[in-house]
Computed example of a mutant assay.
Amino acid sequence: MNTVGFPAFDPKQAYETNLDALVAQIETRVILAGNSEAYFCKHSGNIIPMLSGATIFQTIHPCEDYSIPSHSNLSFHF
């Protein structure tokens, strides 16, 4: 504990944790982009229609599967 009653903060550990999370998100983003590219190479000229109304909350649809970023947010937590 430090003088204000909070647990000690280890900046190196926080940096490494954030870096590990960032690398994992980047690796996921690369995979998602590869999946999207493969889909559109296989389905040349195909346009995936966007959902409308309440259906926009569905998570199983090509517009969700092949969008970038697909369900992943690149975020940092400090």
Rank of each mutant, 00 (worst) to 15 (best):
K42W: 00
A8Y: 06
V4D: 05
E37Q: 12
F6N: 11
V23R: 15
Y39L: 01
C41K: 15
P7L: 14
I56L: 07
Q58T: 11
A21T: 11
K12T: 12
H71E: 05
T17M: 09
T59M: 12
V23S: 08
A33L: 07
H77Y: 13
G53Y: 00
S70F: 03
I47Q: 07
D10F: 03
N18Y: 03
P62F: 03
Q58F: 12
N2V: 10
G53A: 06
I60D: 12
D65K: 15
Y66G: 00
N73K: 15
E16S: 08
L22W: 14
S44P: 02
Q13V: 10
R29M: 13
P69L: 14
H77P: 05
S36L: 05
A38F: 04
K42V: 05
A8R: 14
G5E: 04
A33E: 05
I31C: 07
T3H: 12
A38L: 02
P49M: 01
G45K: 00
G45A: 01
N18H: 02
L19K: 14
I68E: 12
S52I: 04
L32M: 07
E37I: 15
H43A: 02
S44H: 06
T17P: 04
Q58L: 15
F6S: 11
T3K: 13
E64K: 15
H61T: 08
Q25H: 12
N46H: 10
V23E: 07
N35R: 12
A33N: 04
G53I: 01
K12C: 09
S70G: 05
T28S: 13
L74S: 06
G34Q: 14
F40H: 04
H61L: 08
T17I: 09
S44C: 01
S44F: 07
A24S: 13
A33Y: 02
N35G: 07
P7H: 14
G34P: 03
A54W: 06
V23C: 04
T17V: 11
F9W: 08
C63W: 04
M50Y: 08
C41I: 13
E16L: 14
I47C: 03
M1E: 02
D20K: 15
A24W: 05
C41F: 11
T59Y: 03
S72M: 09
V23N: 10
P69C: 13
S44K: 15
G45W: 00
C63P: 00
F9G: 06
L32T: 07
R29K: 10
